[in-house]
Design a protein around this nucleic acid. Structure first.
Lengths: 232, 232
DNA sequence: CTCATACTCCAACGAACGTTTGAATGTTAG
DNA sequence: CTAACATTCAAACGTTCGTTGGAGTATGAG
């Protein structure tokens, strides 16, 4: 009786540990972060995480066994996606805990945002209100496919690759707020640095779509693909 | 430039993976669950998780390096505790994700609550209201020390060991709701089975203090130790 | 049909982990 | 001081994991 209780407990904790196992590898975390931006084929996941397709496939298998991602086959490609918003919420939660607990991570993030004035001085709600009224321009600098599968309200797609040639589209008399995949993504940082260099009033917003949604704010989904041709 | 970005990203994800590493072992999860009940010395943690003291110490060291627990030395004993409520919230979150995603875990939990009528048919808020009005009796069947470091409002301490000899203290005309450490703990299940056998109207409440607090509800802390002498 | 593409499975290596053992540290009691 | 206790540290065992290379499945094109 006492022993059977131990067996049950061991089983229960072991099942939860399967989730832990899935998120104890940096590469798997990066894959989850990427999948928070929307459905992607293995090849692109591998390229964006800068690992081999085989390794990506192996890690995705692990995540699939933990039921955190699922695959969909379309033609020659296999598209992976998170099994639900709860997984994205979990990614936000574990990263938030790490930021709370690990001084090394705080230090690294601080260095990432070394130009403090480049960080958005607004709360999420404030940004939403000002974007709605048109006081600020919100730029989504991720690849267009990620913009299509979900973006912040009132944000316009402005992929980092196209920023230089589409500079004329942006007003110089309004503050410009750029966001990307989240706090660990460097795209918006790069965009803001370039924009400020070019004389714009640009700020970085640390949230990605997952963080935005996890805090209970609405996300828009594009009805159809964008005009833009370039897509990594 | 592109490469330095990779280095930064690798570092960031690796830091988060440290949290993942800390929670990829069933024993460490069990230790976290136990520490959610309050501060405990190594010896008791080892006994309750049914592992050797040395192994417990090793696991605690791992958790300490992830800054999820911290130690306090008092005389001959070393007391461990969580570094903050965020850690308890995280334990609730990862377990919740596991329950969502892993069918095996759902099945195991369902077997654990095989007598469906023994589960509380109330929400947290409802239980709180009825406990306040005295409509139901709420029993905390954990060891007294855990009751002292935090318990549900209006709950009285009734350790499982003392239940049989203190049966006369309980009214037979009111429903009795027992809770323990959380969904993975078997103490309240045992208590409820015994009480129903003895003719009481007893129900199990799956929350522990951590779950209760993580859902935003208030927790009471005892001002001083209880009269009871028995303590494991 | 063959060929190329995209992905997964299988085998294998070195590295890291969980666990146990024995020694060492620090603390309290006498 | 010594003795006893609680905890940590260091080394060593077998196991598992991350990663890579090679072979094997599907799909679509010609």
């Amino acid at each position: 009786m006492k022993n059977s209780g131990r067996q049950v407990k061991d089983l229960l904790y072991a099942q939860v540990a399967r989730i832990g196992k899935a998120v104890c590898s940096p590469k798997r975390l990066e894959l989850i972060d990427l999948l928070c931006q929307g459905e992607k084929p293995v090849e692109r996941l591998a390229a964006e995480a800068q690992i081999s397709v085989k390794l990506a496939s192996a890690h995705l298998k692990e995540l699939r066994q933990a039921h955190m991602v699922e695959a969909r086959k379309e033609g020659k490609h296999v598209y992976y996606r998170l099994t639900g918003e709860a997984v994205a919420d979990f990614w936000v939660a574990i990263r938030s805990l790490a930021e709370d607990r690990l001084l090394e991570l705080r230090a690294a993030l601080a260095k990432l945002a070394e130009h403090a004035h480049e960080l958005t001085p607004m709360s999420r709600e404030e940004l939403l209100a000002r974007a709605k009224s048109g006081e600020v321009i919100v730029l989504d600098v991720r690849p267009p496919s990620e913009y299509v599968s979900g973006h912040l309200p009132y944000a316009q797609s402005m992929p980092l690759d196209e920023l230089k040639k589409r500079l004329a589209e942006l007003p110089r008399d309004k503050p410009v707020v750029a966001y990307c995949r989240g706090p660990f993504c460097l795209m918006s940082k790069e965009a803001v640095e370039y924009l400020n260099q070019e004389g714009f009033h640009a700020f970085r917003f640390e949230d990605g779509v997952a963080e935005w949604r996890a805090h209970g704010l609405p996300v828009e989904v594009a009805r159809q693909a964008l005009k833009s041709g370039a897509e990594g």
